[in-house]
Design a protein around this nucleic acid. Structure first.
Lengths: 235, 235
DNA sequence: CGGAATTTTGAAACCTTTCAAATTGGGTGG
DNA sequence: CCACCCAATTTGAAAGGTTTCAAAATTCCG
């Protein structure tokens, strides 16, 4: 039992939630119980479909997903990424319709997001604020940046978020995305993503091998594109 | 008194809020009182600054504002537009920091957003949901669309929103933006916005004169770019 | 080991930006 | 009411970044 509890608190999802706001015992118990009701999805599974009623809110336990908009000719734009510890479908109004499709990018484990008590509401509110801030970053990325800056900026976001939930090892972290998906996120063509990535590697900015990325100088890259860490609350 | 009350309900801001959710008498009274405490800003006034603590939530009574990200070299990207009836700074977590700068684009009148009772909370939740949906649209616009589609898409958004709050007359509505600002919103250069707009006029898609836009066939334009009206709730 | 998915390459076409200058338009003061 | 000025729009030409298409090379997985 003790072992299990320990393991529980080391889960990236729980780590993230704890960093957003202090969790009391009741919240931790509710979360541990919710984890027991987790369900599993394969890559390309659609967790939520744009325009359809939203399901109950869920917590990403492990794996990556993306919010996406698709257009008729098959192209798609990733709006944001959902990583372990992120919340899907938390809503403040009745009868909500999904404003985006959510698709699993890897094997994905979700569990119900327990909503007992004000502590968890607090945490979800923080989570929501971060989510919105990253949406704004994504707009600035697409509207203001060139190809290589877009990719740098997105990788820095991954690094920041994966550091928060304990999934980064220093400047290294797993990115389970193909270049095609990176293109869907950055509004570029796959071919161009490939070329820009090669240039970044040759320039010594990063190493990308076997699904793992190492940013050689995250702070330097951030400075180069004028990026500051995302903050949503004073405390 | 009766006259005043009538005028009150015809304000675009109030019209919008009423469409989001039914307002009970208490809410209407609170709103009318809040309008009495309105304050006025000139173009370029900064209502909120990215990274600084957020002020109390406010309601846009009249005029246009934009949420923006700026970079050091003076360029800026508009993230979204704030029109009469929109809410600025409504937040669900404590000690919030602004994740974007809000700047007045015209003469702007704001009033405190009253927060008495569940009715108004409901309305603000709906407003928030729309705001997020339009942010997602903006991402898709920048990531997926070509110049002319971006502009069309944005004008359709304006038309939709200004219809909701009663500020559109059929297919015609005021757009108090210069081409330079349209460029800031669409991630294009001013020069290119100019050329695309000329083409749209010559193609008979729209008329833009004296700050007023007429879309000759909104539904046709929407179909051309695959746009559906934004919906956030089933009801 | 074989087959599918992913990454890589080349060259040409395309869209968009940049720069600089001319033109138009709107508002102000004389 | 006209002259003037500043802001906004318009124009041209050249440079630049990105896409497209098609095919080759590589990697991954069963």
């Amino acid at each position: 039992m003790l072992r299990r509890a320990l393991n529980f608190e080391e889960q990236p999802a729980i780590r993230r939630l704890r960093r957003l706001a202090p969790l009391d015992n009741g919240a931790l118990i509710a979360l541990e119980r919710a984890l027991g009701a987790a369900s599993r999805f394969g890559p390309r599974a659609e967790i939520q479909v744009e325009g359809e009623p939203m399901a109950e809110p869920r917590l990403v336990v492990s794996g990556w997903a993306a919010r996406a908009r698709m257009v008729s000719d098959g192209r798609q734009q990733y709006l944001s990424f959902l990583l372990p510890g992120d919340i899907i479908g938390w809503c403040y109004h009745p009868d909500p319709l999904a404003s985006s499709t959510v698709v699993a990018l890897t094997d994905l484990v979700l569990c119900p997001a327990p909503s007992d008590g004000p502590t968890l509401h607090q945490v979800y509110a923080m989570s929501r604020a971060y989510e919105e801030a990253y949406l704004l970053d994504q707009i600035a990325r697409l509207g203001l940046f060139h190809a290589s800056e877009r990719i740098t900026s997105l990788l820095l976001e991954f690094h920041e978020r994966l550091s928060l939930n304990g999934m980064a090892q220093g400047h290294t972290f797993a990115v389970p995305l193909t270049q095609e998906r990176l293109a869907d996120a950055t509004g570029l063509s796959t071919v161009h993503v490939n070329r820009v990535l090669q240039q970044a590697r040759r320039g010594g900015d990063l190493v990308w091998q076997h699904g793992r990325v190492t940013l050689n100088d995250p702070a330097g890259l951030a400075a180069r594109i004028g990026r500051a860490p995302v903050r949503v609350s004073r405390s």
